[in-house]
Amino acid sequence: MTSDDAQPRATMSATRGREGAEMTQIEAPRPRFAQIADILRDRIQRGVHAPGSPLPSEPELSREFGVSRVTINRAVGLLRTEGLVQVRRGKGAFVRPIPVITRVATQRHGARDKGRGAYDVETRRVGLEPSWTASVERVPASELTAGLLNVAVGAELVVRRRKYFANGVPTQIADTYLVSELAEKAGVTEENTGPGGTYSRLADIGRGPIHFTEEISFCSAIAAEATFLDMEPNQAVFEILFVASDREHRPVAVTRHIMAGHQWRLRYEWTDEPEGGSE
C-alpha cells in the first residue's frame, strides 16, 4: 500500500442496543484509489467523460486529487477491470466507446414475431447500429449438444456461428446448433436466413419455438473469445446456454452466447400471480 492509500485507523464508536448492551460500530475508511475510482466512474456515467473520449492523463489526475501517479494507476486499473475504460499503449486511458446494452429475455421472442432480430432491437434501443457476420458449418454432436437436442453423440448438426457488433465494436459471439435434417427443411443452412432469423424459418415449417430455457454462467473467457471481444485482463463473460423447444416441447435449437460482462446487462421480468387470478 502506498502512502497515498494509507488512511487513519478505523474509528470505533459505542452505542446502546435494544437491551442496553454496548455495541461497537467500526467505520473503516476506504482506500483513496477506490474513492478516486468512484468519482471517475460517476463522471463516466453522467457523460462528463463521453464514450470513446480520453480520461485526463495520470499527471493531470494526480494534481487534481493530490495523490501519486501510482494511486491514479490503481484507480484506473479498477475501472479497466470493470470494463468502463481501456488503455491504449502510449495514448492513455479511454472510456469504452459504446454504452451498456440491455438484454431483456422476455422481450426477445416478441421482436422475432415482428420480423426483427432480437439483437437488432436491443442495440437500436440505445442508439447503436447493429451488424454481424455469419458462417455455417456441419459438426458432430458433442455430449452436451447431443443431450440437449435429444440426438446421439456424433449425429450431424448444423452450427450457425455469428459474431455481433454495435457501431463496429464487437459485443457478442453466438453459436446455434440444429439437427441437420431440421436445418435443411427450415432452409437455415445458408448464411442469410431472412427476416426474423432462424426461429422465424422454423415457425414457417410448423416447428417454431415457444418454450425456452437458459442457464447463465459468469466465467473467464478463453483466449480467442477475449481477443475478439477486446477485453481487459481479468474481465469475465456471460455464458448463456439457451435451449428453444417447439409446442410439443421438442428441442429445435441450442445456442451458446458469449457476451462481454462489461458490455451487457441481463434483465428478467415476470408477473407473480396465483393461477386462476387473485385470491
Results as ranks from 00 to 15, higher is better:
residue 273 E to D: 11
residue 240 I to S: 09
residue 236 A to T: 13
residue 99 P to E: 06
residue 219 C to N: 07
residue 252 V to M: 05
residue 121 V to P: 00
residue 26 I to G: 03
residue 28 A to N: 11
residue 235 Q to V: 06
residue 44 I to V: 14
residue 194 G to I: 06
residue 203 A to H: 09
residue 276 G to Y: 00
residue 76 V to T: 15
residue 276 G to M: 01
residue 200 S to H: 12
residue 59 P to Q: 07
residue 17 G to I: 10
residue 67 V to T: 13
residue 173 I to L: 15
residue 266 L to Y: 10
residue 195 P to Y: 09
residue 249 H to D: 09
residue 47 G to R: 09
residue 195 P to E: 09
residue 194 G to N: 05
residue 245 S to F: 05
residue 97 P to C: 09
residue 252 V to A: 03
residue 151 V to D: 03
residue 104 V to F: 04
residue 258 I to M: 08
residue 153 V to P: 01
residue 198 T to C: 01
residue 181 E to Y: 00
residue 173 I to A: 02
residue 258 I to Y: 04
residue 39 I to F: 02
residue 237 V to A: 04
residue 242 F to K: 11
residue 149 L to I: 08
residue 187 G to M: 08
residue 9 R to Q: 11
residue 80 R to L: 09
residue 95 V to W: 08
residue 36 I to W: 05
residue 184 E to G: 11
residue 160 R to L: 01
residue 86 Q to T: 13
residue 20 G to Y: 01
residue 122 E to W: 08
residue 121 V to K: 05
residue 229 L to V: 03
residue 119 Y to N: 08
residue 99 P to N: 08
residue 135 S to T: 14
residue 158 V to L: 13
residue 116 R to M: 11
residue 112 R to A: 02
residue 219 C to G: 01
residue 106 T to H: 14
residue 222 I to D: 15
residue 192 N to P: 00
residue 32 R to Q: 12
residue 1 M to L: 11
residue 59 P to M: 07
